[in-house]
Amino acid sequence: MDGDRMITLNEGGVSRRGAIKATATGAALGATFALSVQPIQAQTMITTPADGLTAGVVKVKTKDGKEMDAYRAMPASGQGFGTILVVQEIFGVHAHIADLCRRFAKAGYYAIAPELYFRQGDAKAVSDMQALLREIVSKVPDEQVMGDLDATVAFAKGEGKADTAKLGITGFCWGGRIVWLYAAQNPALKAGVAWYGRVVGDSTPMTPKHPIDIAKDLKAPVLGLYGGADTGISNESVDKMRAALKAGSPAAQKSQIDTYPDTPHGFNADYRPSFRKEQAEDAWKKALAWFKANGV
């Protein structure tokens, strides 16, 4: 798929409509790629069909009474599915994140990706990375994100198909950091998988604490998946996080961080040049095994 094609999402499945131009603005959640990551690497991009799934956009009622869009996928029949919160990259819930939800659904899970920036703006419609960081991402408070994730779990439970007693969370880039924070916040969480999320940072009103600050307080074990050649997340900071986990809670001590040598940030992002097929496939297997081993 190239940047001028759109995936149209319906409850029953996914259909391609070639030659229909689309931008992120006004498109269904998960239907297009963020403008800031164009052009797309069509030759490596993975597209997971929705046959055998119930997949599409749903409305989640947040604690402050607002409606938040989320992309949800699950097997079309059955119930009692383990539940996985899928936390977006910095680019919002675009087509790659929706595809990851379908991949989890194909593995038998109820997967849901809430649009966690929805109060601040549509990250998919911003073409300039610096503007995205300045105008949207920097204005998203961690406290808001934690509350919206809790609301998403309540929505999943209310649908009657998910077993939220078997709750996991995974996130990528911006969402990888959120995984660590949520694992310290929700005692009902069974496990997390954090993909290349930063672990250190400055304390700000929006982000008062970072993973290394709360490592000792983890309530669920987290598997960290990192690239050894990540130019934005140093190996030194990851090693510090490992040390903090060893000195932490039982869940923290059960956690682990795997680093892939000579591998860049975003190695699972199959639509970008950073994609590394071998590492991504290995990490995906590890993620599924981690959730299974920890009761998700």
Rank of each mutant, 00 (worst) to 15 (best):
F291W: 04
E281I: 12
G3N: 09
Q120N: 05
L35S: 11
A220N: 07
D148A: 00
S237K: 02
A247Y: 06
G175Q: 09
S249C: 08
L149S: 01
G56P: 01
D262F: 07
H265S: 11
G171F: 03
G232P: 12
E143F: 04
F118I: 03
L116F: 07
W174S: 01
A229N: 10
P221D: 06
M129A: 12
K161E: 06
W174L: 07
T152Q: 07
K219R: 03
T204Q: 10
P75Q: 10
A165M: 05
G52K: 08
Q38Y: 13
Q79F: 15
V222H: 11
Q38N: 12
A22L: 06
V137D: 02
V57M: 01
V145M: 06
Q38D: 10
D51H: 13
G171Q: 01
M146S: 10
F104C: 12
L218R: 01
W195S: 05
G108V: 06
M206D: 05
M129F: 09
A188F: 12
W284G: 12
P250W: 06
G197V: 06
H94P: 02
A73T: 09
T8H: 13
K190G: 13
L181K: 05
V58T: 04
K139G: 03
A215W: 09
V57D: 03
M241R: 00
R242V: 10
G227S: 09
A31C: 01
A194N: 08
F118G: 00
K254I: 01
R242K: 14
M146G: 09
D150H: 15
G227H: 05
G18P: 14
Y226L: 09
D148N: 12
D163S: 09
A27H: 01
Y271H: 08
A95Q: 14
P75M: 08
R103W: 00
Q38L: 14
R16L: 14
A107P: 05
A244Y: 08
A24D: 00
A287P: 06
D282Q: 14
D4G: 12
C173I: 10
N186M: 08
D217G: 07
F291R: 03
D217P: 06
L225F: 08
D282I: 13
S15I: 11
L29I: 09
G197L: 04
L9W: 12
A252E: 11
K106G: 09
A188I: 10
F275G: 04
G248K: 02
A76I: 13
Y182S: 13
